[in-house]
Structure formats: structure tokens, C-alpha cells
Design a binder for these strands. Sequence first.
DNA 1: TCAAAAGTGTTTAAAATACACCCATGG
DNA 2: CCATGGGTGTATTTTAAACACTTTTGA
Lengths: 210, 210
Amino acid sequence: MAVDAVLFSIDKKKLRVLLIKIKQGQYEDKWCVPGGLILAEETLEEAVKRILFQKTNVSGVYLEQLYTFGDLGRDSRSRAISVAYFALLNKPEGYNIGTTPYYADIEWKNVAELPELAFDHKKIIETAHQRLKAKIGYSNIVYSLLPTDFSLTQMQNVYEIILGEKLDKRNFRKKILGIELVEKSNKILSGQAYRPAQLYHFTQRRLTLF
Amino acid sequence: MAVDAVLFSIDKKKLRVLLIKIKQGQYEDKWCVPGGLILAEETLEEAVKRILFQKTNVSGVYLEQLYTFGDLGRDSRSRAISVAYFALLNKPEGYNIGTTPYYADIEWKNVAELPELAFDHKKIIETAHQRLKAKIGYSNIVYSLLPTDFSLTQMQNVYEIILGEKLDKRNFRKKILGIELVEKSNKILSGQAYRPAQLYHFTQRRLTLF
DNA sequence: TCAAAAGTGTTTAAAATACACCCATGG
DNA sequence: CCATGGGTGTATTTTAAACACTTTTGA
């Protein structure tokens, strides 16, 4: 009985997922999402948090249960039932995860160009991406992919990257401001070679549906 | 590692859930949804189907994974992680489930007036009801709660019972017929003391989103 | 002065909502 | 002929979609 965590972030204009390269055994050199066995005295969510922290040194992410995968043969070594979670992180530009000796490698991979994955992890990542796509349409979930203060253009970029399509700037702003999901910060993003942007922040920094 | 099945049906104008009364032990005389342990060589869905059939003699229902419950102490006898499914059945009027010697009782209970439930099964049933409420809004899932041929009034009743509110007849029909979810059968429901209804059937009798 | 992103409104189409009366049948 | 549920249309409001130019800044 295991948990797996699909940790997404956005970097260099792409949706990224944190993957680990398996060091040895039958799945050697294949990639997978971080996962591990559930201990007797921890909840599912505690297990995911512990494993994410132990394996990737990441904590404080948005977490949501995704789906439980229990097909026979998903891990050819033994019967494995896994509760998959998806997680979101506002990864600072250029922030990298330290490698651990237990894995051959650990990297943020572009979700649109996944390497060869072990187990059914391709399916798990796709399911997570689908859920994310759907959920940005009726919740403020993107707060967890943005810094506290952000411009509406940055926010629109997050939407466009997740959805994989361009959105109309005026309609996007009308919608977002109409929902009263965000409010103006008193900060302004300057220092670029063009007009400074008004910054906003979420009125709620926890999952809220609309 | 277990599965639980929240089996809904509609009878006597109420949303019903199939519950089992526990015969002995700490939870004696409390009610719960049918559930049981997953065998080593079966998938989650196979486990649910087997358990539903063994415990309630029901088969051929709509099945969908709901959520995995794994909190500590949800079963005070031991650590229990359970993958909950929700299931839908078109229960013929007056159709009853035979009792089994393993349980004190088995009954279709009104979801709005649940008896005292063991474990976290109240929460599981509420989660399932929520999912059902949401899903009738963007899928043809109600096909599994209706006979092959049905009148639009019958269908509207199913919606109203699940949502717990009255809907406007003209708007309901406009919407349903506009989606092209159903088509006219060549049957007509007569034999009642009023105008016979045109019957319809679903164009797809499998889950379809819109 | 130019390059680059910020910012802003109106028109049109589509979808959702509100609302009330006549119809067909069996008893 | 009456009680019962079956069946139908229009007007209004709300929401979504399409669409282009001016502004501000740093270099």
C-alpha cells in the first residue's frame, strides 16, 4: 500500500513535473514520480508529505488526492496499490532539487515531453494534468503556482501553460477581476524594460471554488 | 486494504442507499455500506463487484471510484485504508434485497435520514452524494438510475431527487433535448389516468460528458 | 524614439432563467 | 366533465466570446 505524488510546477514557460530516475533493478534508468509505502501510524496525506520531503526535500506544497491505482501488473515485481496525490509548488525560477544518493537523478521534466516512465506513472501524470486543467476553471487553485504578489499577465501565463492554449487578455482580466478572487497589492512590478505592472494577491490562499 | 461501495438507487421519490446492519462486535447494530478486503489477484473494481455481489446479490451496476479514506482511527479495531466507490442502480419499484445470515439486516435507506453509521461511512456517503449531484450536471450518468425507456418527467424527477430542489419543466426539457442526450422511443407510456407520455432512451448507455 | 509588455470597452452571440396556459387521457 | 400529469414558447438576463488600440517605461 503506497502513495505517489505528482508534483507540478511552472518554470521557463512550461508545466513541469518532478521525476526521479530509478537507480537499479528491473526499472533501472526509467523515471517515476516520488512515492513510497504508507507507514502504520500515518494518514495518507502525512505519508505523501513525508515521502515528498524525504525524497525531494520539498515541503509546504498544495496537496490533493487524485485517484487510487490498483490494477494488477502495474508494478511487475509485486501487487501494488497506490493512492496518487497531485501537488503544486511555486518553484522559484532556477530553483533546483538536490540529488540524493538513492536515485540516479532527480529533475523537473516538461510534462509535454515526458521521458520513459516506470509502472503506470505516465497515466498517473496524465490524470493529474487533466484534473489540474479542469480545476483551474472553477477554483483558485493556481494560487499555489504563483508568488504572493503577481501581475495579471503572470497569472494568465499560468492558465495558458496549463491549458496549452492562448487566452484573450481582456476577457481573462474581466473574468478574474469579476470573481473577486484577487485584489490589488500596493506593489508594482518595476525594473523591467517596459511599463510596470500592477500586482495582485489572492484574497484566499486556500482552495476556494467558484 | 479494503473497498467500500456506496450503492444509490431511487425508490418512492427518495434517494436511497443500500446499508447493512452489523451483527456483532464493537459496531453491533450500527449500519454501514457494503465493503470488504481486496484479494491479492483482483483489481479494485473487481473487488467492489465481487463484494457487492456476495453481500447484496447486486450486479451490473454503474461503478465509479470515489475517494480513498485512510485516516487513523476510522476503524477503531485496526488500521484500515479503504477505496470507496459509488454505484448506481435502477432499482425496480418495490425490489428488495435478500438478507444474508452474516448481517443483522440489509435495507435501502433514505439518504436524507441516515441511521447511525459505523466507521466514517456517513462522510463516505455524503462525499458520494456530492459527487453524484455534481456529475448529473455535466454527464449522462442518470442513465443508470432510469429504465431503458422513460418519460422526461421521470427523468426530471431523478434530477430533482438528487439535487433536492424543484426544476422548471420547460427549461429542463429544453436543456435535455438540446444536448441530444436522449432520443424518442417509439413507445408511449399509457395506462395511467391521464395523458400518456412520450418515452425516450439514452443515445449512449455509458458515461458520456457534455 | 523604439521595443515591449500593460492596460482598457464595446458589440455580438449563446446560455440560463423566469414565467402560464392548453392538451390528452382514464375514470 | 373533471382530475391529473403531459406538453409547449417567449422575453429577459447573464455570461462568454470576439476584437484593436493607447499607455508607460527603460534602454
